[in-house]
Design a protein around this nucleic acid. Structure first.
Length: 753
RNA sequence: UGGGGUAUAGGCAAAUGGUAUGCCAACAGUUUUUGGUACUGUAGAUUGAAGGUUCGAGUCCUUCUACCCCAUCCA
């Protein structure tokens, strides 16, 4: 399928190549405070998947640092989910709470280093002192406490001598940091609460920012993968490990975008609300996006894993179409599951010319599914068909039974409608039909053509079953809350009729109910006496879609119109000095407006440019290189930190001016200068990068490229001029970039004529 | 408003500066005793915008715009 690597695997591969770690170690670190949902499945697939792909291992760790929200039942649900998805964690399940003693020692160490202090401000004061995004915060007076006092206080906090909220332990970082998270983050808080594992042993609990990075380090994690909202926390992650001197193989944090799916909610708060206020039957309600829900609905682990693979991993916040998930389960079940017949809304059919009864052979699988197995289908004079499959006044394109149109009973005979019986209200109650004895499935000699074959059940042997039909939980794509709930998300059919083999033979727990969809014998409520089936997903239904056409086609157009509007913002005015430079650059030096603008607005760039200019007077080329290539290097560094000098850039430009090298090669040489600081002439000499402009050297290469790509030559000559770049690219590639691109262009143009 | 991110078809994702690709969705056709599946094909993108550098830009530079995250003693 998609062979390309995601950005995380790219990072991991680079680290492996650089021998940064002995082994790739990842971890899946949920907080056991709720049931895992399909977003967790994505995280599980990433963490365990990467570990598997690179022969490493993945830990399962409960990030249980908040005693007030966590519980053992969630631990079990989390373990279940991982196992059900088919993954094995390394060793035992880990718990951050197991590291509490170690974490405490690290905290003391930070205090001793003068990097942490016990703060006694109130919660409100702490918030106030933190400042805002635009104003710096100020440090608490308690930050001045001595090491001894801090150590003593922390010990007493641990021993339970203080009330909740009286003190906290904070890192001493920077109260005016632009990153709000770095304004002396809290490390420990007092909680007189019972922890589900450590009981009352601790009165202080570490915060996420302190516990997480250290737990990763303790476990020897190499790649700590989390979601995007922790980007701002990465600075603390690094600060804690660096400050404690926990270097060399140590974990680094990488973030990816969490999963969003339309028509559903993923936030723990909202899911909890659904459960607590009984909008659903529980965490495992088949409409829930929880693993437990999906599982009870009938989703397979394979389908969910495949879904996770299909959606990919990136850093863009996005909303995946639920149709993609539905495709995955259909795709999986299509090749696995037996077909059986079920009638949800029965309409009685009496076949007046049929006497007695018989048992028909019927394969469980269609021709295109390479599986074996069949059952006996009882058949008699009275059967039931789906009410939808008969129409007295059929719409155009209706393939099923009508007063004029015969239809095949799947695996059985062709019937035709003789009479429609109605009750006093005009509702159809029964169809009187006749059958064609010679039309028996498999030995049809009737020569009658029908447009479709419908499912049916024999009236006397059919079993009654409860069928639960699920629709999406919410009515809108991006639901906010309970006000967006779909009131018809659950439809229970108490008296559906199923063929007997389904119950007596039980060929599987998942089935395709022919022409309807995939169904799952409910693992909890199902019994042979009172069978219950959950609808997993419907079949793709192009007839139904056509039938109720004309709903809301205007949406895409509206969206397209919205997209066009682009407001152009104001550009800040230049200072006087910048203005003066700009005048000089555009006037005296004849630079282009854009380049002059870029250069004159940047102090570092203009200084670099002017120094280089004094060495080699070639303003335009120099300005181009400086404003494009050098600018990249100067973004996060000062001129002094660069390995190359303005004089070397001047030298590089001189070689371009003298046509020793092309612009393309110049960029390559520049890259080398960035890393090695070597003189351009030396690099060109050492790597033999001198430009090739002699057509007699280039022509054979062009011939070669054309000979190797005859189809593209043809396409180009047929009018696909975009391919021009392809040929130039191939030729340049063949010469290691050394061919003079202008010459190549001219020659390729001639050759392709 | 400061900082950190992100932007490629209706959705999700690829693309060493060199043919914008895959899956879902949509549409059409072929096959079919499932209006399923499979197969084939069609349509859909001035790669958020505007400039610049380059023979050549989704990719490099500049500016702008929109959206997301950060001021919990949650994680």
């Amino acid at each position: 399928m998609n062979e390309s690597k995601d950005f995380l695997r790219t990072i991991v591969e680079e680290d492996i190549k650089a021998h940064k770690y002995n082994e790739v170690v990842t971890r899946f670190p949920p907080e056991p405070n709720g049931f895992p949902h399909i977003g967790h499945a994505k995280s599980i697939a990433i963490n365990f998947g990467i570990a598997r792909d690179y022969n490493g291992h993945c830990n399962l760790r409960m990030d249980d640092t908040n005693p007030t929200t966590e519980d053992t039942r969630y631990v079990e649900a989390l373990k279940d989910a991982v196992e059900w998805l088919g993954f094995k964690w390394e060793g035992n399940v880990r718990y951050t709470s197991d590291y509490f003693p170690e974490l405490y020692e690290y905290a003391k160490q930070l205090i001793k280093m003068g990097k942490a202090y016990v703060d006694s401000l109130t919660e409100e004061e702490i918030r106030e002192y933190r400042g805002t995004v635009t104003e710096p915060g100020r440090r608490s007076v308690y930050a001045e406490r001595s090491v001894e006092e801090n150590l003593d206080l922390l010990e007493r906090m641990k021993n339970g001598e203080f009330k909740d909220g009286e003190h906290v332990l904070r890192a001493k970082i920077d109260m005016s940091a632009a990153n709000m998270k770095m304004r002396d983050p809290l490390l420990y808080r007092i909680r007189h609460a019972h922890h589900y594992r450590t009981g009352d042993a601790w009165n202080i609990y570490p915060m996420y920012d302190f516990g997480h990075c250290l737990s990763d380090y303790i476990e020897g994690v190499s790649h700590s993968i989390c979601t995007l909202e922790f980007e701002n926390n990465r600075d603390i992650y690094d600060w804690v490990l660096d400050t404690l001197g926990l270097t060399s193989p140590r974990p680094y944090q990488h973030e990816f975008a969490r999963l969003g799916i339309n028509y559903t909610v993923m936030s723990k708060r909202k899911l909890l609300e659904l459960v607590n206020e009984n909008y659903v039957s529980g965490w495992d309600d088949p409409r829930m996006p929880t693993i437990a829900g999906l599982r009870r609905r009938g989703y397979t682990p394979e389908s969910i894993l495949n879904f996770c693979h299909q959606i990919g991993i990136a850093k863009a916040n996005s909303m995946v179409d639920v149709a993609q998930l539905e495709f995955c389960i259909r795709d999986d079940l299509n090749t696995k599951v037996p077909r059986v017949m079920c009638v949800l809304d029965p309409l009685k059919v009496t076949i007046e010319n049929y006497e007695g009864s018989e048992e028909l052979d019927a394969s469980y699988y269609p021709e295109d599914v390479p599986k074996e197995g069949s059952r006996k289908l009882p058949f008699s004079r009275e059967i039931y068909i789906e009410r939808d499959d008969f129409s007295e006044n059929p719409p155009a394109g209706f393939y099923r039974l009508t007063p004029e149109q015969p239809v095949r009973l799947k695996h059985a005979y062709i019937i035709t409608c003789k009479e429609v019986i109605k009750d006093a209200q005009g509702n159809i109650t029964e169809i009187i039909a006749t059958y064609y004895p010679e039309s028996k499935s498999g030995s049809d000699t009737s020569g009658i053509k029908v447009k479709s074959a419908i499912q049916w059940v024999d009236a006397h042997s059919a079993k009654t079953a409860e069928v639960r039909l699920y629709d999406r939980l919410y009515t809108c794509e991006a639901p906010e809350g309970i006000e967006d709930l779909n009131p018809d998300s659950l439809h229970v059919i108490k008296n559906a009729l199923v063929e007997p083999a389904l119950i007596t033979e039980k060929p599987d727990v998942r089935f395709q109910f022919e022409r309807q969809g995939y169904f799952y014998a409910d693992p909890i409520d199902y019994t042979d006496e009172a069978p219950v089936f959950n609808k997993i997903v419907g079949l793709k239904d192009s007839w139904n879609k056509k039938a109720k056409e004309g709903d809301a086609p205007a949406k895409n157009e509206r969206k397209a119109a919205e997209k066009k509007v682009q407001i152009i913002g104001e550009v800040s005015p230049m200072s006087e000095a910048e203005q003066a430079r700009y005048e000089q650059y555009t006037g005296e030096l004849k630079l282009g407006n854009e380049v002059a603008n870029t250069l004159s607005r940047d102090e570092k760039l203009s200084a670099f440019f002017e120094t280089a200019l004094s060495v080699h007077n070639s303003p335009v080329t120099l300005a181009n290189i400086v404003s494009n290539e050098v600018a990249r290097e100067l973004k996060e560094k000062d001129a002094g930190e660069l390995k190359f000098s303005p004089a070397q850039i001047a030298e590089l430009v001189k070689m371009i001016d003298e046509e020793i090298i092309s612009n393309k090669i110049a960029k390559q040489v520049f890259e080398e200068m960035v890393t090695s600081g070597e003189n351009p002439a030396v690099i060109v000499e050492a790597q033999g990068l001198v430009q090739i402009s002699d057509p007699s050297l280039i022509l054979p290469i062009i011939d070669d490229v054309m000979a190797k790509n005859p189809d593209n030559v043809e396409k180009y000559r047929a009018g696909n001029t975009k391919l021009f770049g392809f040929f130039v690219g191939q030729v340049l590639k063949a010469t290691g970039g050394k061919a003079n691109p202008q010459v190549v262009n001219d020659l390729v143009t001639q050759k392709l004529q």
